[in-house]
Computed example of a mutant assay.
Amino acid sequence: MAMRMNPWVPNQHGAWPMVAIPPLVGLFWCLKIWDAVSPADRGEGMHGTAGMVLTFLAVTVAWVVGYLAFFAGGILMRARNAAMRGRAVAPTLLYGAVAGLAAVLALILQPHLLWWAFVFLPLIAIAVYETWRGTPRSLASGVATTAASVFIVPVAATIGLGASNPVSGGVTWTSNLFTPKVVEALPSAVWVSFLWLLLYTVGTIFYVKTMIRKKGDPGWLAASQVFHLAALIIVVATVGVRYVHWAAWIVAVAVFAVALWRSRAVPASAAKGTPWPPKKVGVREMPLHAGVAVAAVMAALFYDGPLILFIG
């Protein structure tokens, strides 16, 4: 199968929503937080709006091109012949270099982003290790890559904070570099958006396995349904988080209720003989993925709570 792959163009179409949606949700949080920062506390130039825009673009490029590098690198690690390995070297190096340069630019503009290395490095290490050992579609790899993608939301939100005077002046390469205060300043509603996206995307790992690689496996089917039920309960419980808008919460609950229903109904229809090829499974997920993204964006747009930030 590897011989038919083009290492320059990923063929994992289901991964693209997980690549694209978190930066989009993060952009809304970034702008919302920047708008909430007092004008007196906003930076100027590369320490203000211009720097914020450039940093967000750099982080987005690092993430998207980093995914391309990971895909090509996966082919390079798994290739069983020299020809395929040779084809994968160039995209791995080029994509890796572009992603690395974009990450360095983001760190130069907002050094506080280096704090997120504590989150991303272990997740990326797990995904790379699972690919190296020949199990790129394992549950561990799926959860690690999914979590890494969703963490782009709080990362982008801290970019909005990074353009404020307290952060741009208080977090440099020689002062407070690993301070957690920038992360602690994120509104709890940001983490609710993160949680909704994380629960949904991890749920798709279980669901898709019950439809393709683990089709007909009663253990995986039970695990999928239990996870979706637990996810719905957790989402319902987020109603108690302050400043999470009721409309966003209703959309999220509706999405997870439908996801729970389809975690049982669709595998049941497949068991009765209804054809569910991988492409059909992926297409039918698009409305739900869009729905949870809309809920997360609404949480950002309708957020009207306080923003407290102190770096000292």
Rank of each mutant, 00 (worst) to 15 (best):
M3P: 15
M5A: 12
P7V: 11
N11F: 00
M18P: 01
G26N: 06
F28W: 14
W29P: 04
C30I: 11
W34H: 06
V37L: 15
P39N: 08
E44H: 10
E44C: 02
A50M: 06
A50I: 03
T55F: 07
W63P: 01
A69G: 02
G73V: 15
L76H: 14
L76D: 09
M77W: 04
R78V: 01
A79T: 12
V89K: 07
Y95N: 10
A97R: 03
A99M: 14
A103I: 00
P111Y: 07
L114S: 14
L114C: 08
A117G: 11
L121W: 05
I124N: 03
A125K: 04
T135S: 11
R137K: 13
S138P: 09
L139A: 14
G142Q: 10
G142P: 02
V143C: 07
A144V: 15
S149K: 06
A157T: 06
L161C: 02
G162F: 11
V167F: 04
T172F: 00
S175N: 14
N176K: 12
V182Q: 02
S188F: 01
S188E: 06
A189I: 09
V190N: 03
V192E: 03
F194T: 05
F194W: 11
L197E: 05
V202G: 07
G203P: 10
T204Y: 00
I205C: 01
F206E: 08
V208W: 01
K209D: 09
M211W: 07
M211R: 11
G216R: 00
G216E: 00
D217V: 03
G219L: 08
G219Y: 03
L221Y: 01
V226N: 05
L229F: 15
I234M: 14
V241A: 02
W246I: 15
A247E: 13
A248V: 13
I250S: 01
A254D: 01
A259E: 11
P267R: 12
A270Y: 02
A271Y: 04
G273K: 08
T274C: 01
W276Q: 10
G282S: 07
R284H: 12
L288Q: 13
V294K: 10
A296T: 01
A299Q: 10
A300F: 13
G305Y: 08
